[in-house]
């Protein structure tokens, strides 16, 4: 079973994402901030990370930078999932190693398509 770590300080977003991801067959872990997310990754690297931008202590960009600086941290597919919807933010996340980007609010179709796009779900033709 593929694993996805949902990193978001909003419990509502984590709950919604968990529901969608579990329906898609993922085993879901949650973290409410960047630091515990990095600790969880150090213990067991997930297949995917759904990563919020703004979090109170360690934000998504810092997580992405630290994650991608190690060999093992280059393997998970990182999908940024934030309300920062301008081009500069998106371009910055991509340049630091995000594989895809979801603008909040999102729906299950968008999340499914993005997981397909990064190769973690089979395509429905």
């Amino acid at each position: 079973m593929k694993t996805c770590l949902v990193v978001d300080d909003s419990s509502v977003v984590r709950k919604v994402a968990r529901g969608i991801l579990e329906d898609l067959g993922f085993c879901v872990e949650e973290a409410a901030d960047g630091a515990p997310a990095l600790e969880m990754c150090a213990r067991a690297m997930p297949d995917a990370i759904l990563l919020d931008w703004s979090m109170p202590v360690t934000d998504g960009l810092a997580v992405l930078e630290q994650l991608r600086s190690s060999e093992a941290g280059r393997t998970p597919k990182v999908i940024f999932c934030t309300a920062k919807n301008d081009m500069e933010h998106i371009a910055r996340a991509v340049s630091l190693g995000a594989d895809e980007y979801i603008m909040k609010p999102f729906d299950s179709e968008i999340l499914r398509e993005k997981l397909e796009a990064v190769g973690l779900l089979d395509r429905v033709d």
């Binding site: 371009a91 895809e100 968008i110 398509e113 796009a117």
Partner: peptide, 13 residues
Amino acid sequence: FEVQRGLSVQQLL
């Protein structure tokens, strides 16, 4: 919503 369906983030940018 429309630009997130079917387009990659690279295509969007």
